[in-house]
Amino acid sequence: MSQTDHAHDAHGHDHHDDAPHSTFKGYMTGFVLSVILTAIPFWLVMAGVIKDSGMTALVILGFAAVQIVVHMIYFLHMNFHSQGGWNMLALIFTGVIVFIVLAGSLWVMYHMNVNMMPGLMKEYL
């Protein structure tokens, strides 16, 4: 009797913590990576390493994207099984919306500027 009670109790009060378990190694890996990924874009721009502005912009955006992923993994502990995958699902959904908002706004407004106010554009640029 006591045995079954105990078993039931243990199950009922089983506080299995869903919160991520962090490690010193994980944080340090993330920190070192993000320092490197921050330092390189600043160096590229401040020292003017790449002559072409468009190329520099693409490269530093690439570094930013990688650094965001590094922060997501090592600092925010994102993975496919925390909270039964709902964390990741919310993140992916937000990513899609963010992409639509950013790309859509830039695309539409660029064409509005170019096609509808050609005279004004030259004056204000």
Partner: peptide, 8 residues
């Protein structure tokens, strides 16, 4: 509910 629903 998951124990840490607040986190989600």
């Amino acid at each position: 509910h998951p124990e840490t629903g607040t986190l989600l």
